[in-house]
Structures are given as structure tokens and as C-alpha cells.
């Protein structure tokens, strides 16, 4: 049960993602952007950060990294893939997910504990949550505004593909307060907030948020439970 975590030049949260996989009870396997081989991993996390300095557009250059060739094929074939923050931007650039992430509408970097509703719970990454469950995980981005045309947004809503939505106020101007989406099959999930930063006692969101700070861990236990079941 190995979960690959890809490191690109400029990745920031690859270690935290790998740590979250281990805290959930799984084996994290380091994948390298320049190696066009997934080494037989059972799932992949594309971590947060600033791949290739976010030059051109966030994720636009990383999307053509050698590892993305086999990854895109495997994702289309059903391999569970979770893109967090820069990983979400990358999945949109790679057209594995619809829409795009643009600069926050208020033009400032946002870093805070963010309440979310988990709306789609039949994906391999979210099956541990109850539909509509409120969780709090860190959010930190400068270009986290989720945008797509109206037709795409209607499709996403109609097909139940909005995985997570911002609660309370919209932190970055995302259309329809969308924080995360999935592909039709549900194996590919992209999410702007950071569940991997809310998976270890004492290091997650402050207990004043009304949670135990571990609300993100179930993304990682979900994938491991699913893999064990298969």
C-alpha cells in the first residue's frame, strides 16, 4: 500500500504529505518529477508549493514534467490522485480536472484555518467523511481562486463533483465558493486547502477552531482503507 508523493523543483509540502500518509498508517514513496515512472504506487499525491517558481502560470510548466506522462495515463485509468494547492493547479493545467485557479480576488496571500464542507464522499480520498461534514484545515495560497465557465460550473454541481466548498466567507473569490473538485469517476481530486497540515496532534489548526486539529487526516486514512479493501 504505497502512496507516491511527487517532488517538483519548488515543491513545498511534499514532506508534510508523506508524513500525513505515514501518520495514517501507510507507506509514502518519494516520486521525482524528472523520473517518468510511478514505480507501481497505489495512489499519488501532488503536493503544494511553487513548482518551477509558478512561472508562466501555476502548474503550467510542471504539467509537462516527465513524471506527468505516466501519471496522466494512470489517472485516466483510475489511479487515485490527490492534488493539493499547487497540485490542484497542476491537475487543472493537465486537464485532468476542469477549470483553473487564478489570483485571489483580493490580491493578497491568504493563510488561515479554513472551514469547509465535504460534499462528495464517494471518492477514494473522502470516503471517511460524512456528506456535508464541516471540517477545518489550513488554507494558504495567493492564486487559489477557482474559476470555470458557467456551463462547467453547472455540470460540476449537477454531477455532484464539487468535493469541498468554503464555509463562512469565501477566502479567495472562488466561483460558487468551490474549494475542491473531482473528475467524473472520482479518483482524481483537487483541493486548494491543505488536509496534510491537519493530520498530527498539536500541529494542525488551533483547537479554538472547535476541532481537534486532525480534520485532514481522513483524506489519507480514506485512501489507505480503500486500497486495503481492494
Amino acid at each position: 500500500m504505497r502512496v507516491g508523493v511527487v517532488t517538483f523543483p519548488g515543491s513545498l509540502d511534499d514532506r508534510d504529505a508523506a508524513r500525513a500518509v505515514r501518520l495514517a498508517g501507510g507507506e509514502a514513496f518519494a516520486l521525482w518529477h524528472a523520473d517518468a515512472d510511478l514505480h507501481g504506487v497505489d495512489a499519488v499525491v501532488l503536493p503544494g508549493g511553487f513548482s518551477y517558481g509558478d512561472y508562466l502560470r501555476c502548474g503550467a510548466i510542471a504539467r509537462f514534467a516527465p513524471v506527468m506522462g505516466p501519471l496522466v495515463d494512470a489517472a485516466r485509468g483510475g489511479l487515485p490522485v490527490l492534488g493539493i494547492c499547487n497540485g490542484f493547479q497542476l491537475l487543472c493545467e493537465a486537464h485532468l480536472l476542469p477549470g483553473a485557479l487564478i489570483r485571489n480576488d483580493h490580491r493578497r496571500f491568504v493563510c488561515r484555518d479554513q472551514p469547509l464542507a465535504i460534499e462528495r464522499t464517494d471518492t477514494p480520498w473522502t470516503r471517511g467523511y460524512a456528506p456535508g461534514e464541516r471540517i477545518v484545515v489550513p488554507l494558504k495560497n495567493g492564486e487559489g481562486g477557482y474559476v470555470a465557465d458557467e456551463r462547467t460550473l453547472d455540470e460540476l454541481e449537477g454531477e455532484g463533483r464539487v468535493v469541498a466548498r468554503y464555509l463562512d466567507d469565501n477566502p479567495n473569490g472562488s466561483y460558487r465558493a468551490i474549494a475542491g473538485v473531482s473528475n467524473a469517476a472520482g479518483n482524481v481530486v483537487g483541493l486548494m486547502p491543505h488536509p496534510e497540515h491537519a493530520s498530527e496532534p498539536g500541529f494542525g489548526p488551533d483547537v479554538r477552531s472547535g476541532t481537534d486539529g486532525l480534520d485532514g487526516l481522513r483524506f489519507f486514512t480514506s485512501i489507505l482503507d480503500g486500497l486495503v479493501r481492494v
Binding site: I102, R103, D105, H106, G145
Partner: peptide, 10 residues
Amino acid sequence: KPEILDPQGQ
């Protein structure tokens, strides 16, 4: 695109 917010322009 016209339907996409342009924070830099704003």
C-alpha cells in the same frame, strides 16, 4: 477571457 475575473487589471 471576458467571464474570468482579472484581479491584476482591477
